[in-house]
Amino acid sequence: MVLTKQKVFRFTFTHFFAVLLTVMFVITVYLQFRLLTEDHCNCSRPVVQYVAKPKYYVNRNYDSNHKLAVLVPYRNRFEELTEFVPYIHSFLNEQKINHDVFILNQVDNYRFNRASLINVGYLETKSNYDYIAMHDVDLLPLNKNLTYAYPQLPFHLAAPTLHPRYHYDKFIGGILLINREHFGLVNGLSNKYWGWGLEDDEFYVRLKDANLNVTRPENISTGTKDTFRHIHGKDRKRDTTKCFNQREVTRRRDRQTGLHDVKYKVVSYKSMTIEGAPFNVVNIELFCDRTITPWCDCSGEKTAKKKN
C-alpha cells in the first residue's frame, strides 16, 4: 500500500512539475516578445503632425496658362500687410494674372532671413506654379504698365531707374519675377544672409554666373517718385547689425548654400482674406547651423568672446 502511494505521489509530482515548466516557458516567451515589440524607454517620440495645405485661389478663367506665386517674406509688418494684400490682388486681377499670394511668416527666434524664406516659398509652391514674384510687402506698383506676366528671363520690376530708394545698376530687390526653371537652375538664394541686406546682390551674381540676363521694364513714363509707393514707415528700424565674421563672409559669392540645404519647418498654413482679397499665411520656422552662420543670433557673440 505504501509503495502504491509513493508511485502516485511521484506520478503527480512529475506531471505537476512538467506543467509548471510549460507554464513558465510560455510566460517567459510572452514576456520576451513584449520586450522586443514595445518601447519601454522614456525617450520622447517625434510627434508627426498633419499640416493642412493652403487653399489655391487661382482664377483659372484668365487666358494665361501660367500661374504666379507671389512670395512675400514677412515678420511683424501687419499695417503694411493689410494694405498690400488687397492692393496687389486687385492690381494682378486687372492684368488678368493667375495668381496666389503667400505671406512667408518667420516665426522662429532667429534674425530675419528674407532669402531663406523665399527659398521655402519656392519649394512649397513649385509644383503648382510656373513662376514666382519675390515681392517686398512695403512696395506697391502705381503704374498700370508694370506687367507681372510670365518672364522668359528674370524680370526686375522695381528697376533702379524706377525704385524710390535704390538706384545702383546691380540692384534687383523690391520686386523680381523669375520662372520656376531659372530659380531652380541657380539653386535659389543664399541661406547665409541673416539680418537686413545684401542677399539680392548675391543673387544677382548667381544669375550672371548662370548667363541669365536681368531684364527690366521699358517705355515707362513715370520715374522714381511716381512708379511705386513705398509704405515702409520711417520709424521702423532695420536689423543691420554685423556680428562674428558676417561682414567678411556675406561680401563673397556663396557657392555652398541654397535650395538644396535650406532647413525649415512649416508650422501651419492659414488661408485668409483681407477686404475680400484671398491670401495664404505660411508660418515657417527656420533652423540655423551656428558653425556656418553664427550671426543668425548676434546675442551669442558676447558669450563667445567671454569664453575666448
Rank of each mutant, 00 (worst) to 15 (best):
H89W: 01
H89G: 05
F91E: 08
F91A: 07
F91D: 10
F91Y: 15
L92W: 09
N93I: 02
E94C: 05
Q95P: 10
Q95H: 09
K96C: 13
K96P: 08
I97V: 15
I97D: 07
V101T: 13
F102Y: 10
F102I: 07
L104D: 00
L104K: 01
V107C: 03
D108E: 04
F112R: 09
F112C: 11
R114Q: 12
A115I: 01
I118F: 00
I118V: 13
N119P: 01
N119S: 01
L123Q: 04
T125R: 00
K126N: 06
S127D: 07
S127H: 13
S127R: 05
D130F: 04
D130G: 05
I132H: 00
A133Y: 09
M134Q: 14
M134L: 15
M134C: 13
D136A: 15
D136M: 14
V137P: 09
D138T: 12
L139H: 09
L140P: 06
P141I: 02
N143D: 15
K144F: 07
N145H: 12
L146A: 12
T147A: 08
A149V: 03
A149Q: 10
P151D: 04
P151E: 06
Q152E: 14
Q152G: 09
L153R: 12
L153K: 14
H156N: 11
H156P: 05
L157H: 12
A158P: 03
A159N: 10
T161V: 08
L162F: 10
P164F: 08
H167D: 15
H167F: 11
H167L: 08
D169K: 11
K170G: 13
F171I: 04
F171Y: 15
F171T: 07
F171E: 07
I172Q: 04
G173S: 14
G174W: 03
L176V: 06
I178L: 09
E181L: 06
H182T: 08
F183H: 01
F183I: 03
F183P: 03
F183D: 02
G184T: 00
L185T: 07
N187K: 11
G188H: 00
L189W: 09
N191L: 06
